[in-house]
Amino acid sequence: MKKLFIVALLVVGMTSFAQEKEVRPERAQMGQLTPDQRNQLQLKKMTLELDLNASQQKEMSTILAEQSTKREAKMAERKANKDSAKKRLTSDELFAKKSQMLDEQIVMKERMKKILSLDQYKKWDDIKGKRHNRIKKRMAYHQNRKPTKIGDKK
């Protein structure tokens, strides 16, 4: 009787692990969209969150298009580097890469300050900070394989 119970538990456990994981529908659909469609959806989302007017929407659409082309170029570069021999960056290369990324973030913040009103900018910065914390938690979880406690810092 005891062996039968253990076998039944094993069968139930194995069948539950054998089932396919459900892929998030948003992510699967986002991969099928063109870059222009993704930019439009992102602009509409920002318009709803920040209550952008028509001129702000026009300026944001150009910024989103620029970011999208940069992102696509970086992804293509990463794929090309991934196929080649895996090498670790030297400290100088790593410093240059991080410095460039931070410079781009500074320029983006300045552009956003020019486009958005003070209230809109504060709201945008808050949303960006929350999104950054979520990504940070997710990365920490996957690296450590255990949940981490990260405060609501910006």
Rank of each mutant, 00 (worst) to 15 (best):
N133I: 02
I115K: 00
I115T: 00
F5N: 03
N53I: 00
K123C: 05
T34N: 07
D36F: 10
H142L: 14
S91D: 13
K114C: 01
Y141S: 06
M60E: 07
T15P: 01
L48I: 05
S68N: 10
L41V: 01
K136M: 08
S68M: 15
L41Y: 07
R24Y: 05
Q37Y: 10
M30E: 09
Q105K: 14
I106P: 01
L116M: 10
L50D: 02
K154Y: 04
K114L: 06
T90C: 08
V107Y: 05
M108V: 07
R111V: 01
L41I: 05
Q120F: 03
L52T: 00
R145L: 04
V11I: 15
K21M: 08
A65F: 06
H132M: 09
K128Y: 02
D103A: 14
A28I: 10
S84D: 13
A8N: 08
F17T: 00
K86A: 06
K137A: 11
K136N: 03
K130L: 09
A85P: 00
T15Q: 12
K136G: 01
M46L: 15
K98A: 11
N144S: 02
E26Q: 05
K97D: 07
L33Y: 02
Q120M: 04
Q57G: 15
Q42R: 15
Q32M: 14
Q57E: 15
E104S: 13
D36H: 09
L94Y: 11
K153A: 09
K70L: 12
L10P: 01
Q29V: 12
M75I: 12
K70T: 03
L4Q: 12
K45Q: 09
M108N: 13
L33F: 03
P25R: 14
K79F: 05
W124C: 07
D92K: 15
L10K: 08
L4H: 10
Q32Y: 07
K136F: 02
A96I: 04
E93F: 07
S61E: 14
K74A: 13
L89C: 07
A18C: 11
L94N: 13
I127K: 14
S61N: 13
S61G: 07
M1G: 06
E72V: 05
Q56D: 00
R78G: 00
Q105M: 14
A96P: 01
K146E: 14
Q143T: 06
